[in-house]
Structures are given as C-alpha cells and as structure tokens.
Design a protein around this nucleic acid. Sequence first.
DNA 1: AATTACTGAACGAACGTTCAATCAAAGTAT
DNA 2: ATACTTTGATTGAACGTTCGTTCAGTAATT
Lengths: 191, 191
Amino acid sequence: MVSTIIKRELSRQLLLETGLKLFSEKGYEATSIRAIAKEACISLGLMYNYFTSKEDLLREIFLSGQYDIEASFATEQTSDSGITGIEQHILNTVALLKEKREFWRLLHSLRMQSTIYQEMKSPIDKQIAYIQKMIERNLLEIGFKNPSQEALLLFASLDGIASHFLMDKTYPIDKMANYLIQKYKNSSNYE
Amino acid sequence: MVSTIIKRELSRQLLLETGLKLFSEKGYEATSIRAIAKEACISLGLMYNYFTSKEDLLREIFLSGQYDIEASFATEQTSDSGITGIEQHILNTVALLKEKREFWRLLHSLRMQSTIYQEMKSPIDKQIAYIQKMIERNLLEIGFKNPSQEALLLFASLDGIASHFLMDKTYPIDKMANYLIQKYKNSSNYE
DNA sequence: AATTACTGAACGAACGTTCAATCAAAGTAT
DNA sequence: ATACTTTGATTGAACGTTCGTTCAGTAATT
C-alpha cells in the first residue's frame, strides 16, 4: 500500500516533468496529450488518472514551479555575507533561470496570451510585487534617491536579460549579471 | 478592372489586420480560421483566395509588420536636433511600441516557441543585430568604455520594459523612457 | 480476492482546407 | 440603353485529420 502511494507520486511527477518539457518547447496549445503520453512512454488515457484535464496539468505544472521559485526567493535575504542585497538578488535570479529554465520558458511564452494564463496570473503577480518591494528596499539601503523607479528599471532589465537567455542558451548571462552588479556598486556613490 | 485590384488589396488588408488582432490577443495556435473570418465578417473559405494557408497568413502579417518597423528604424539617425542618438533611439522604440502594439505582442508571444517562429527568425535576427550595432555606435559617441556590453544591457532593458508594457497597458512606459534617457545623460561624464 | 494502475479503441467536437455553386461587376455586342 | 458574356470575388457544405476526453477491459500489486 505504501509503495503504491510512492509509485503514484512518481507517475505524477513524470507527467509533470514531461508536460513541462513539451509545453516549454512547443507551447501549450501546440502540444497534444498524445505527444506527452508518447514522450513519457505511457498510454494515452493515463494522464486522466492524475489530472482532470490538459488545463489542470498545466495548472499543476505552474503550481509546482512557482513553489520552487517562491522557496528560493524567500531564503534570499538570509545570507548576510559581504555582498549587498542587490548583488544577492541578481545572482539568485540568474541561478534560478539556469536551474528552472523550462519553467521560465513556459511562463514567458504564456504570459502574453490572455485566455489560459489569466487565471494563474494572480499568484504570480503577488510574487512579482513582493520581489519588486524587495528590490526597492535593497536599493534604498545602498542610497538610491528614487528606489521605486529604479526597482522598476532593474526588474525590467533582469526580465529582458532573462528573455534573451531563455531564447538563446549561449547568451552571456553571467557576464551580464556581473556587469549589472558592477553598475550598482559604482552608482551607489552618487545617486 | 482597376477598382477590382483595389478591392482585392482592401480585402487582403482586412484579413491581415484581423489576423494580427486575433493572433496577438489569443495566440496563433488558439486562433482559428473560423474566428478570423467571423471577426472580419467574411466567409470561411475566402482567406484561401488571398493566402495559401494559415501559416502563410502569419508569415505575411510578420512581413508587413517588419516592413513598417524597418522603415522607422532606418530613418532614425536622420534627425540631428540637439538630442543624442541614444535618446532618439529610446524615444523611437517607445513610439513604435505604442503604434504597433499588436505586432509586438505577436512577436513576443511567438519568439519563445520553436516550430512556427523559427523560419521567420532570420530576418528579425538581422534587424536586431543592426539595431544592436546602432546602439553601440551611439554609446561610443557619448564616451562609453564598454559600448558592446552596455548595448547588450540597454537592449535587454528596453526589451524588458517593452514586455511589461505589452502585458499591461497602464505600465508607465514614458516615465521609464525618460528615466533611462536621464541615466544615459548623466553617466556620459564618467564612464 | 480485492484494489489499484494502466491500456487503447472509440466518441464527438473542432480544426485547416477544398471546391462546386453563386453572386457582382466589367467588357462587349446589339 | 439593353442584353449577353466573361471574369473574378465570395460562399458555406463537406472532407479528412487531429484533438481532448471517456471508459470498458486488462495487468499488476497487495
């Protein structure tokens, strides 16, 4: 009985991973249940034992990905080594982008279209607002005169860098991160 | 005979506009030919007199949009008023985003997914590389030490700002543009 | 023996696409 | 001007395919 529960969870995880992989590659609409079943080496109907529909699978993939990211951002401020909060945030963002590449690709490809994404939008928006506030606090700490405007800019810059990295694996994301960090180290003197 | 040609071109334009509208709203895959025909108040089959397939319609929409944008960026350097090339570029980008919002939404929603977009990618990449070079030249002019790296950052920042504006009409894009411009005016002294 | 995991044929709906038929407009002959 | 002809624009029923989803049946596990 116990191993059944474990096995069930394993099958569920396999479907979540395979779904994420194909959704992020080809897009949600262009990926069929048949393609997911084939990729995961299971039968066509099995998905419906774990998820009520294709949309439900997407929802659960989102939920699972969000949980990981939330956890990562939550522990961000704990580390109090010599580096600033901004530096920590930038490095953390880059690490997350690399680690959860498929999830971010899915997010970036879905967020522009209204119908499917709109119902999953609200928790993500909350998370974004939270990150925004965190950046603002960190910018205020290093003496920025206009932290809310600068936070908006930094957020957009990081988002743009993320987009380019998600579209092109060879994008020099580490160089960009270091360049950004350097900028904020230098600018802390005169802003 | 002449009016027939004009009529044909008008019908074609109507389909291009309606297709762009729906593709940018709901996404390419999620938009059916039937939906386009209904929105344009024409019959189901008429699209196939002007375009060979749904994909061909998308291709032509892209081509048409690209042409407009190319034209706008090409005339960018001509204006030699008191403002710098960077300022001109930022203002021009914002103006284009507002004017061709639907096209940019379509581009941003398609560029992450491989299959459909990949064949239209090459001309767009060329255009991006050209803009990148232009930014670099402008950055060099105002005395940046590392123009190619800075151009990569400015490009990402503008792309991020664009994404946020495309997702949210109330995004303060003008404020962001002015803030960016101010940054580059001030930083020209010590970079 | 009982419970759960899994299969894949089958279903209705929706899709992109085709095409014979209809309509509107322009050209030509009377 | 009027009638006939020709041409191209437009229609929507119909076709084959694929989609998401269901479910009776089979295999595996307890």
